[in-house]
Design a binder for these strands. Sequence first.
DNA 1: TCGAATATGTCAGTTATGTTGACATAAATT
DNA 2: AATTTATGTCAACATAACTGACATATTCGA
Lengths: 170, 170
Amino acid sequence: MSHTGAIKPASDVSVAPLTGEAENIDFEFIELLFFAYRDFISDPDAILDTSGFGRAHHRVVHFVNREPGLTVAALLETLKITKQSLARVLKQLIDSGYITQVAGPEDRRQRRLYPTERGRELALALARPQSRRIAHAFEGLDEGGRAVVKAFLSGMINPAARPGAPDKTG
Amino acid sequence: MSHTGAIKPASDVSVAPLTGEAENIDFEFIELLFFAYRDFISDPDAILDTSGFGRAHHRVVHFVNREPGLTVAALLETLKITKQSLARVLKQLIDSGYITQVAGPEDRRQRRLYPTERGRELALALARPQSRRIAHAFEGLDEGGRAVVKAFLSGMINPAARPGAPDKTG
DNA sequence: TCGAATATGTCAGTTATGTTGACATAAATT
DNA sequence: AATTTATGTCAACATAACTGACATATTCGA
């Protein structure tokens, strides 16, 4: 393993590393985001492995805890998945007592979602290591640094869709 | 839809939004990361839908372009997936002419991976919208802001494993 | 009041991407 | 010559997404 460079192997082949200089493509941050998010998600994954749930359950438990009384439609809009996808994990979470459904007080077609005490504990257990990781990443940065990162991440997010836009929940 | 608060539906139910205040849990950044990464990944997804490839292909094409001559073992280590997982997408990328394999010049057991011209173009096409999104998120921030975000994202990433650590490539 | 629209649920089949386990081959190392 | 390493491959399986179709209860609008 002494040499490090690439050896040209054939004709229709690119041997130079793609740095993005020619087009000013920001490969550095593309990769930082990839690795940061992968490791960020690995913390709860380890916990979920134990309980038999997956990432899909994590997301549902998280948002139901953040906004108790959420309707199914609102949850679908937040997660941007289909109702058939949600149905499976939601059913498991309800059956195992992490989430309960309550008919909407004004619109009784709605099934408003609430966490049980158990669901609240799971949400906290999953969030703890992620929050610790974030705190670690902010070490050495001041309040201004926090504001900068918040501005950056906010700028990465798509503007919210107009309330009347078509959806894929059929 | 006149009321906004939650109505208490039963006994074993939490009705207050989970803010994380009690434990200082940083739900704000947990969600910022979730939405930022989801939208970040949606750009290439739209392109991939057209070509019949998926995210797994994207990652392979990306890293092979970034480091032409990469060995299969190095790629597996980077992606942290099993060789059986990689095999499927890598075969498709080779068969459709985006990547070529060349026996290692010093160790002929190795299959060093190179992008073809086509593969290089795909990598660029996938990276362009992501880079644009990053540039947009940096608007209004100076060079120091860039350094702050870089420090934050780097701090989110697990330290590299020791070179002799056990793996799951069996 | 009645028909249409809405909120949700469910059945059935498919796809993408990951997993484990077992085994094969060629080349390098000891 | 025997073992280890780098890679490939077959088979079975799990998760989580998808599309399409249809069912039910409730609300809303003409």
